[in-house]
Simulated assay, not measured.
Amino acid sequence: MKLIIGAMHEELQYSIDYFDLHKIEDEKFNIYKNDDLMFCITGIGLINSAAQLAYILTKYDIDEIINIGTSGGCDNKLKQGDIVIIDKIYNCVADATVFGYEYGQVPRMPKFYQSNNNLLQGKLKNYQIKNIASSDIFINSQDQIDKFVKKINNQISVLDMECFAYAQTAYLFEKKLSVIKIISDIIGVKDANNVQFSDFIKIAGKEILEILKKIL
């Protein structure tokens, strides 16, 4: 069974309706499924994301994991509404460099996680391939980018608060993870964000459905 996982209900509501998914758990986790697909709304943040994905992978038989949703950008080559397939996934607030680890590397874990782009090849058009960094900080200023993101030894173009947790959990459970993001805003670029987020999230939800129709 394929698992579609995201942080916000608004991002996946159109898809939940279209694929005729029914809620099967809602006491602690928002989980929906039909015969072939499972969707989970984890909420925002690394711990929420890791806990809920670990719960699903322990309880259900999942073959593939796809994280899809909106994310901010910190790359002036991107613009609002761009579709990005994630390549490498980093943690931008992990710092164990005093012990010889690279900035962003959790001790005794990989330096980064590699998204499984093979699941998406040939199925999408008009996308870019970029790296992402996650944290429990809502990064929305150039000062924060300089303080946290630029310490990573690679070009980071996308930021969120969940993806690294999905990736590390998938790694521990030996599951493949694909990641698709729609850029909601660009930090530090004047006039880059033409649509306010409250309106953009509705537009993005429809775009996410169109993407899922192509890849599922």
Rank of each mutant, 00 (worst) to 15 (best):
N131H: 06
N126D: 15
A165C: 11
N131E: 03
K147S: 14
A133C: 13
S184Y: 02
Q168N: 13
A165H: 04
V179R: 01
G122E: 11
L172C: 05
K125F: 07
I145H: 07
K123I: 07
D185N: 15
K176I: 11
G122N: 07
D185S: 10
Y127V: 05
Y171E: 07
D143Y: 12
L177A: 11
V179Q: 03
N126E: 13
E174Y: 00
F173E: 07
L177C: 10
K176Q: 15
I187A: 06
A170P: 03
D136P: 09
D136R: 09
I187E: 06
Q121T: 13
L177P: 08
L119S: 13
Q168T: 14
K125H: 11
I132R: 03
K176R: 13
S184M: 02
A167Y: 05
S141H: 09
I156M: 03
L119Q: 14
K130W: 02
K175G: 09
V149N: 02
D146P: 00
N118P: 00
K150I: 04
F164H: 14
A165E: 09
A170G: 02
Q142R: 12
L120R: 10
K151L: 15
K123C: 08
F148R: 07
K181M: 12
S184V: 03
Q142M: 13
D143H: 12
I180V: 14
Q128D: 07
